[in-house]
């Protein structure tokens, strides 16, 4: 992998991250926000993979596996919370939670 490839790949990772962040800021629905968080995690994971491939070392992939596990845990907890909140809120609007979800 050449240095140019690395730059392109990292730019892709950065673009993914910004898309995720923008989506998280723009969307109100909790489900979509969780989705956007996944996109940002994947952006970070992609950057690890690329970096690992560039220098031919295994740590990049190790970190990605860590990230997968974290993401899985995050989805599990996040979805459980959303499920629990869905009964209390009209729709899953994050701004609605200001009043403490009453």
């Amino acid at each position: 992998m050449s240095a140019q490839d690395l730059e392109i790949a990292l730019a892709l990772a950065a673009a993914l991250f910004v898309i995720g962040l923008a989506g998280m800021i723009a969307r109100r629905s909790l489900v979509f926000m969780l989705l956007c968080a996944e996109i940002m995690l994947n952006a970070a994971g992609f950057a690890f993979i690329v970096a690992g491939a560039r220098w031919g070392r295994p740590e990049g992939q190790t970190m990605f596996i860590f990230l997968l596990v974290t993401a899985a845990a995050e989805v599990a907890v996040g979805l459980a919370l959303i499920l629990a909140l869905s009964g209390r809120l009209k729709d899953l609007d994050a701004d609605e939670m200001r009043s403490g979800g009453a």
């Binding site: 998280m24 800021i25 926000m33 994050a94 701004d95 939670m97 009043s99």
Partner: peptide
């Protein structure tokens, strides 16, 4: 400090 997580997030970004 208005309790809107998206604003916090934006400020963080």
């Amino acid at each position: 400090q208005d309790g809107r997580p998206r604003r916090y997030l934006a400020a963080l970004a």
